[in-house]
């Protein structure tokens, strides 16, 4: 058995004159939850469609377990398209069985799996209803069931959380974590960055068709400047002037928000602060993914 990674390797795609993807490269490891973020039109959906073979890449390769993906391996992917879609006039149960069978399950396996997933996702009472008669929330659950019903070995979900109520978000999160814990690579795109930060092992930020950052949230943080909050009530303005690489970002009451460029010793800052009098708070501020994302995206804009 290989490492069961899903690799997107230098994939490029143009629509006429518009470059949708430029050598986009990242990988999703087995057992990992990978968050794929980027603004609208950055290329998330295009990347996922190429991985699923719904769209053909101009160049580059998608590999699973070290070998290029074929139609047969694609059937092991559970996919939730951005454009949600099921047959509106087909019953939930029948529809899931049909989709499972199209992914190669036998009739009895498909039936069993449908029963299992509708129950786990709380739509077992709606098996006999047409999809069009379901609430939007339940339609989303059925859509997730459609991605899971063939027991996939890879999960690719495009905006799985959009339009979900808080309870459904919890259900979805739980399922994704469970699937990752089973040892399969899970990649999903989302605009809900807090959620991505909370759930994902690693994150990839795409901008204008290029991956601009890939790594754990901590790794992404380490690349940027460090922010510190110091609460020294008696400090006079300019108390940090003597320390190289430190700039004052703002003041918040008696607190000073500082930015330390990479490699500056925070203990020097503490010494300087103590020299002004008592220090009530001295902490590193960990930028959230939202802030990191904003930085990455705006930095690129300036460039």
């Amino acid at each position: 058995m290989g490492d069961a990674r899903l690799e997107i390797d230098r994939v490029s795609k143009r629509y006429g004159d518009v470059v949708a993807l430029r050598e986009t490269t990242f990988d999703v490891r087995a057992g990992e939850l990978f968050g794929f973020v980027g603004s609208n039109g950055a290329g998330k959906t295009t990347t996922m469609r190429i991985a699923l073979g719904v769209l053909a890449a101009d160049s580059g390769e998608v590999r699973w377990d070290g070998t290029p993906i074929t139609l047969d391996t694609r059937r092991r992917i559970g996919y939730m398209p951005e454009e949600r879609g099921l047959y509106p006039k087909m019953k939930v149960g029948e529809q899931l069985v049909y989709l499972a069978r199209l992914h190669g399950l036998s009739a009895s396996d498909a039936e069993r799996s449908m029963l299992d997933w509708t129950e786990r996702l709380g739509v077992d009472g709606r098996r006999g209803d047409d999809v069009q008669n379901l609430s939007l929330g339940n339609q989303q659950r059925v859509q997730l069931a459609a991605a899971l019903v063939h027991n996939p070995d890879i999960l690719v979900l495009d905006e799985p959380f959009s339009g979900l109520d808080p309870i459904a978000v919890e259900v979805m999160s739980k399922v994704l974590l469970e699937k990752a814990a089973e040892g399969i690579p899970v990649v999903f795109s989302s605009h809900q960055l807090e959620l991505v930060e909370r759930l994902c092992d690693r994150v990839g930020i795409i901008r204008g068709g290029e991956m601009v950052a890939v790594g754990t949230v901590d790794e992404l943080r380490s690349g940027g400047a460090v922010e510190m909050v110091v609460d020294a009530p008696r400090a006079q303005p300019g108390w940090t002037d003597g320390i190289a690489g430190v700039t004052v970002r703002s003041h918040d009451g008696s607190r000073t928000i500082l930015e330390l460029t990479n490699g500056v010793d925070d203990q020097a800052v503490l010494t300087a602060a103590l020299a002004t009098g008592p220090v009530h708070e001295f902490s590193r501020r960990r930028p959230s993914l939202t802030e990191l994302y904003r930085n990455v995206v705006t930095q690129e804009d300036k460039a």
């Binding site: 073979g53 694609r74 992917i77 996919y79 398209p81 099921l86 199209l102």
Partner: peptide, 17 residues
């Protein structure tokens, strides 16, 4: 057109030609 309009075609084409 039903498959196109309901977008289910994307799901179908991810597993069959």
């Amino acid at each position: 057109v039903e498959e196109k309009a309901s977008r289910v075609v994307e799901l179908l084409l991810s597993t069959i030609r």
